[in-house]
C-alpha cells in the first residue's frame, strides 16, 4: 500500500505496469511519452483548488522507463499524449470507481495526441487502464473517493 501521489506510489505504478507480461507483449516497441495533468477542483483533498499536479510517463519496449512528477505543465516538446482531468476524476479511476473510457468519451478526461496511434494500440491502452483501476493498492489518508462534496 502506498499513499496516493507519493514517491512510493509512482514506484508501485511503475512496477504494476512492468509486471504485466500481457501488456509487455501488447504495447508498441517505440518510445511513447505521456503527460498526465491532475487539476485541482476544490473537491479532492489531495490537490489544492486552483492547483494542479503534473506527471511524466515514458514507456519504451512495453516497459515504463520513467514515471515521475513534473514541476509544472509540460511544454509539449517530445510529448505524444496529454491527458487532462479534474483530480476527482483521476482519483475515482485510481479507486476503481470511475470508468476511464466513459470519462474520456464524455470529455471529463481530455485527450490530446495522435488518435490513430491510440486506435492502433487500443488493446494495450485498455489493459493499462484496467490494471491501474482494478489492481492498484492506493492508500487514501485524507479520505477515499467518492468524496462527500462531489
Amino acid at each position: 500500500m502506498s499513499v496516493i501521489y507519493s514517491d512510493a506510489w509512482y514506484e508501485d505504478m511503475k512496477q504494476l505496469i512492468n509486471g504485466s507480461e500481457q501488456l509487455g507483449k501488447m504495447a508498441p516497441r517505440t518510445r511513447i511519452v505521456f503527460s498526465l495533468e491532475v487539476i485541482g477542483d476544490g473537491v479532492s483533498p489531495y490537490v489544492p483548488k486552483d492547483g494542479a499536479l503534473y506527471f511524466l510517463l515514458a514507456i519504451e519496449n512495453g516497459q515504463v522507463v520513467e514515471f515521475r512528477p513534473l514541476p509544472g505543465r509540460h511544454d509539449g516538446k517530445g510529448l505524444n499524449f496529454r491527458f487532462t482531468a479534474p483530480a476527482t476524476v483521476w482519483e475515482g479511476v485510481a479507486a476503481g470507481q470511475t470508468d476511464p473510457i466513459k470519462s474520456g468519451l464524455r470529455g471529463e478526461i481530455k485527450v490530446r495526441g495522435d488518435m490513430r496511434f491510440l486506435m492502433e494500440n487500443a488493446d494495450a491502452v485498455k489493459l493499462a487502464i484496467d490494471l491501474y483501476g482494478h489492481q492498484m493498492n492506493t492508500e487514501w489518508p485524507l479520505g477515499r473517493p467518492p468524496y462527500a462534496s462531489a
Partner: peptide, 18 residues
C-alpha cells in the same frame, strides 16, 4: 464538446494532414 467529438475531430484532422 464531448470527448468522443473531440477525439473524432483530432482523428479526422490528423488523417487528412498525413
Amino acid at each position: 464538446a464531448s470527448g468522443l467529438a473531440d477525439m473524432l475531430q483530432q482523428f479526422i484532422e490528423q488523417t487528412m494532414a498525413d
